[in-house]
């Protein structure tokens, strides 16, 4: 039995298989497991995509370097943890250090993102959008290679996860816990918490602050915003910086997650996830990004369950469904679930 044909079709006698699938699925433990899995993945997906969504919304720049910022964040966060955490560090101290690492990485990468915007992207705003894709893609090539060099010089394997950084997570997060008859890892619930926090803070920034108002206005019509006295170029730098900082914060979280981990290929993985989530939600709407993150998380949890419970004999199913969803949304509703017809002021 090969390929993507579900086992239930190969079985020939489909009726009982569907019935058993449904009865398996409707089990409380299974459902709770799927929901928890969906939430933890969704939290990560929203984290990864949030910055990209902000940047595209305001500037119309599809930042291909987004995943590289996430990867860089994972390594920087890991470095902070590996240096500061020793075997004697207690679990709560580790959590405190984790938040410290997150704040520090956010600060550094926000400054870095602003610098990239000012030095590299600003000179090409007046060219075709194509060049912004090309330029940010060039940044990917350079950044990934630089990180690979540093990682190799430190005697580590750039392609495999950074185990030492994974090990800095406190024991109670690495252990499994049982919620309503379903087992999950403490870490995954921690990720839901972090994801919710980042969404809440970003949401608050957008809706409750003067600068957030400028960004929402500029996302709709950047020329009109300028004519009302808003320095849109400055807003571009700030947003590109904050978006890069958020990408890196996602990286700090992923550094602890054994399903991801700090590695150079994380750059591409994170970029593709961010693209899928942001496009399904609608380029340029933060609300859409959050909803799309939840949806993609749910797809992921259901398809992962289908594979693990041997209904489908195809390990790539979750990933494939993700890209199929991307393609399908672009065919049926290119502006995304929550997007507006006209996207981007540039």
């Amino acid at each position: 039995m090969t390929g993507i044909e579900p086992a239930l079709l190969a079985a020939g006698d489909a009726g009982p298989v569907v019935a058993s699938l449904l009865s398996d699925l409707l089990d409380v433990g299974t459902l709770v497991g799927i929901v928890l899995g969906a939430l933890s993945k969704a939290a990560l997906y929203v984290l990864i995509a949030a910055g990209l969504s902000l940047i595209f919304g305001l500037m119309g720049v599809l930042n291909f370097a987004h995943g590289s910022f996430t990867m860089l964040g994972a390594y920087l966060g890991g470095a902070v943890m590996v240096v500061l955490v020793s075997s004697g560090t207690g679990p709560y101290a580790r959590i405190a250090l984790f938040f410290l690492a997150m704040a520090a990485v956010f600060g550094v990468m926000t400054a870095f993102g602003s610098a990239v915007e000012k030095r590299l992207i600003r000179p090409i705003y007046d060219r075709q959008p194509l060049f912004q894709i090309l330029l940010t893609f060039g940044v990917v090539l350079v950044l990934d290679e630089l990180v690979r060099i540093v990682v190799e010089v430190r005697g580590m394997q750039p392609r495999s996860d950074w185990q030492e950084a994974l090990g800095t997570a406190p024991g109670f997060l690495q252990n499994t816990i049982t919620v309503a008859g379903s087992t999950t890892r403490g870490l995954y619930m921690f990720e839901v918490l972090i994801g919710a926090m980042v969404v809440a803070v970003t949401w608050g920034f957008l809706t409750r602050t003067r600068y957030g108002l400028y960004i929402r206005a500029g996302s709709e019509d950047s020329e009109m915003a300028q004519a009302l006295g808003i320095d849109i170029r400055k807003a571009f730098s700030v947003v590109f910086g904050v978006g890069s900082g958020l990408a890196a914060v996602a990286g700090v979280m992923l550094m602890w997650d054994p399903r991801f981990g700090a590695s150079v290929p994380l750059s591409t993985d994170a970029l593709l996830i961010a693209f899928v989530v942001v496009i399904i939600g609608g380029l340029g709407t933060f609300r859409g990004t959050v909803v799309a993150g939840l949806l993609v998380g749910l797809f992921d949890a259901v398809t992962t369950w289908l594979f693990h419970s041997a209904y489908v004999d195809f390990a790539g199913l979750p990933e494939m469904v993700m890209f199929l969803a991307l393609v399908l949304v672009l065919i049926v509703k290119p502006q995304g679930l929550f997007g507006v017809e006209e996207v981007g002021g540039h």
Binding site: L213, R216, A217, D221
Partner: peptide, 18 residues
């Protein structure tokens, strides 16, 4: 060219100097 996703108040606020 009012900002259609902003409320009436926000449209006025966005134009108000800091």
């Amino acid at each position: 060219r009012v900002f259609s996703h902003l409320t009436v108040e926000e449209n006025v606020e966005v134009a108000t100097p800091a």
